[in-house]
Design a protein around this nucleic acid. Structure first.
Length: 301
DNA sequence: AAATCTGCCAACCGCTGTACG
DNA sequence: TCGTACAGCGGTTGGCAGATT
């Protein structure tokens, strides 16, 4: 068992927080702010360890906390992000304002348990992403989860561009520098987003090329890489419109984004868009489709 | 109505990374 | 360079409440 170093004080209370304790902590934090959590219990008059205070504040008491059931949009975002980053709850939570990693973790664990209980979910393998896989959410998630380890490994170890792709039932977007316009540093880690069933792969803002991007589109349920279709076959102007400056910022105007979204939507009844971005934007600004507000996805470390 | 089961979720535990002396 | 303190993170636990038997 063993106590955490911060909890060696005698008479440290554990377990559920009482309303009185909450009140003490809120009063202290709102008047003094939080600097050193280890000092908080004593100064706030609480028989708790600093760690417990911190957790209570972060997960429950802070004013911007959002409670209640997850919306379908939040749920979709969680599923999408989890299929890419796995159990990195804090990272997932950073894309859901007001939600905590703990809450998302709890939600996922109870949710996934429920889904796993469903019988006869086929276990798709990496090498043979079956086109006969059922269309249930579970099969999709199971498949995505199976992908995860390999995906994470590949993102770290393999060179960018086409080689990093994995077979997917999701459509892909890949942005890459054109050979003519710049040099792609093959040591770069590509970054992958999964937003509302779209896998989005983009070079990070630090990419060492100057101008010009090719956008490729990988349709869902691809059997192999050959099925990747350059997006310019459909929307030539979109390729022309993409550019990246010396700072690694990609330029793409709103009209073209809108057209691209419409095209994707027409193809797959779902869409991708870049939201809250005016003028130049970086890889950090690629956002999932979610209502009108748009949650900005930041890059993964 | 009582006992048991089940799921949820707040809180804890232990580990890692970082800052600092 | 090492040790310590601390924040942050993900895994796990335990208690509660509702559902089921």
């Amino acid at each position: 068992m063993g106590h955490h170093s911060c909890c060696n004080q005698q008479k440290v209370k554990r377990g559920l927080w009482s309303p009185e304790e909450d009140e003490k902590l809120i009063r202290y934090i709102t008047t003094h702010g939080y600097g050193c959590w280890s000092e908080v219990p004593e100064k706030a008059g609480l028989q708790r360890c600093g760690k417990s205070c911190r957790l209570r504040w972060i997960n429950y008491l802070r004013p911007d906390i959002r409670r209640g059931r997850f919306t379908p949009e939040e749920e979709r975002l969680i599923i999408s992000l989890h299929s890419v980053v796995g159990n990195r709850w804090a990272h997932i939570a950073s894309h859901l304002p007001g939600r905590t990693d703990n809450e998302i973790k709890n939600y996922w664990n109870s949710w996934i348990k429920k889904k796993i209980r469903k019988p006869s979910a086929p276990q798709a393998t990496m090498s043979t992403p079956s086109t006969t896989t059922t269309s249930t959410e579970l099969s999709h998630i199971t498949y995505a989860s199976n992908q995860l380890d390999l995906v994470n490994q590949e993102l770290i170890t393999r060179p960018p561009a086409h080689e990093t792709l994995f077979s997917s039932s999701c459509p892909f977007f890949i942005f890459e520098p054109t050979p003519l316009d710049g040099v792609c540093d093959s040591s770069l880690n590509n970054e992958t987003w999964n937003s509302n069933q779209h896998q989005v792969q983009a070079l990070p803002p630090s990419a060492s090329f100057t101008t010009g991007m090719n956008a490729h589109y990988l349709p869902p349920l691809t059997e192999n890489m050959e099925s990747m279709v350059p997006i310019d076959q459909h929307h030539h102007h979109q390729v022309q419109s993409c550019s990246m400056d010396d700072e690694g910022e990609i330029s793409l105007d709103c009209l073209q984004r809108q057209e691209l979204n419409e095209w994707v939507e027409s193809q797959h009844s779902s869409f991708l868009f870049w939201d809250n971005v005016e003028g130049p934007f970086s890889g950090e600004d690629i956002a999932p489709a979610s209502s009108n507000t748009g949650t900005t996805l930041s890059s993964f470390p």
